[in-house]
Design a protein around this nucleic acid. Structure first.
Lengths: 231, 231
DNA sequence: CCGATGCTTCGGCCACGCCCGAACCGTCGC
DNA sequence: GCGACGGTTCGGGCGTGGCCGAAGCATCGG
């Protein structure tokens, strides 16, 4: 049964703390250098190099050489989805102890990127608002944009056509590990994140997956989604 | 960052060949005894016992005692979804060698259960047929039943209302590792499998996830989906 | 009560693989 | 050319964890 062996191999690659730290650092979809990933994982560069080689060979990571740097990124969205699903399982177990929420952790819980879409408190609030207004349908298995939702996005200036080429546009629910409730992933989630970043409503922060809601972003989100809690 | 530690722990549990074998054996949604799982994993009962204890404590498995037997099953659908997503990543890498398809493997590739829905060649053909006829929309991120599809299911006698309670019914695509194309999972996939088993069109086989298409099932599938290849 | 069966616990063996120090290659800047 | 820096390869130390034999608990059948 060679297929279970491949299954176990992929899982084992994620199962090492150092590699898990690197993968987590890459989960925002950006490409990082080996040194940055070594720091993220808390190991020396030579250890990181070995891990990165194995992850690349297994097809979890893709590498781009650029001068004397090597940029590593997740090889495909399916890798990100796999990680999300593992986090979902890891999150819905009783926490072994008080999570000890730190200030940095609080930022992550508030708003962060999840590969190509937004996660955290803000993202869940957005999803709730769109569901409450009948703009999207969201079920554990999938979701869909309603006509009202399509109109809403058009008003917001969010462009979905580019990736949806005439086909019906779907969104995908993604269980938020901090909120334990679904936020919007998939094509729709990616379009929302892109649009908000482009408008300057959100800004990526260095060295973390957390994103910041800018002052104009706060106003815009309050107007569009009725979200009015502070940063 | 205690969340990456939990992530790595879950992944590491899947990452051992013996545990992966047990989880795979449970992927059809049934509950098995420790001895059966030990055989499936190719280890002695005492080794299996240790693995099972760890899987249960981590919340991946649930146990039910019944007399002097202990039945183990996957703790939740989210565990099955996690495993599916890992298999999807494991499948879309270049196979290390010729897969060496055996007769038993061929049955699995033809039709098998995938937790609560159908997978394999037959399942992909069903999905293709329904897409071609406009009965479902299927995208990488999600899927939805069209009005035509709802009517089709009604004619087939497939009951979706029980679990969908007035809400819109969604289906979910699930990448088939043998066919490398999506089949139908989610609420719709589960309803189809249940219905076909209840009608005697499909029959579960012992000690494997493979399912058999019965002679009446062959006729019915040909009539309903235009599938006419042999068992 | 006794033995058989299903499963778990204990103890010890062994090896896989994670880790880092040191040395080696390639690119950039001067 | 030379040093500096990013990254990889090599070698050996070491601990975690998988594995089984043997013994210990439960439950069922007689």
């Amino acid at each position: 049964m060679t297929t279970t062996a491949a299954f176990a191999q992929i899982a084992a690659l994620m199962g090492d703390p150092a590699r898990a730290g690197m993968l987590d650092a890459l989960l925002d979809g950006r490409a990082l250098t080996a040194a940055e990933l070594a720091r993220a994982a808390g190991v020396t560069p030579q250890t990181a190099s070995s891990h990165l080689a194995r992850l690349s060979e297994a097809g979890l990571l893709a590498v781009e050489r650029q001068g004397r740097h090597r940029y590593h990124r997740l090889a495909s969205p399916s890798v990100a989805r796999m990680m999300e699903s593992v986090m979902a399982v890891a999150a819905d177990r009783p926490p072994p102890r008080r999570p000890a929420t730190g200030p940095r952790d609080r930022r992550l819980r508030h708003a962060r990127t999840c590969y190509d879409h937004l996660a955290g408190h803000v993202a869940v609030a957005m999803a709730d608002a769109m569901v409450a207004r009948g703009q999207i349908d969201l079920a554990p298995d999938g979701g869909a944009l309603t006509p009202e939702g399509a109109a809403f996005l058009r008003d917001l200036g969010i462009d979905l056509d580019r990736s949806a080429g005439g086909r019906r546009v779907f969104c995908r629910p993604c269980l938020d590990w901090s909120e334990r409730r679904p936020h919007i992933a998939g094509v729709l989630g990616a379009a929302l994140l892109d649009g908000f970043l482009a408008r300057g409503w959100l800004r990526r922060l260095e060295r973390t997956r957390a994103v910041e809601v800018t002052p104009p972003g706060r106003l815009a989100l309050a107007r569009a989604f009725g979200i009015r809690d502070g940063a």
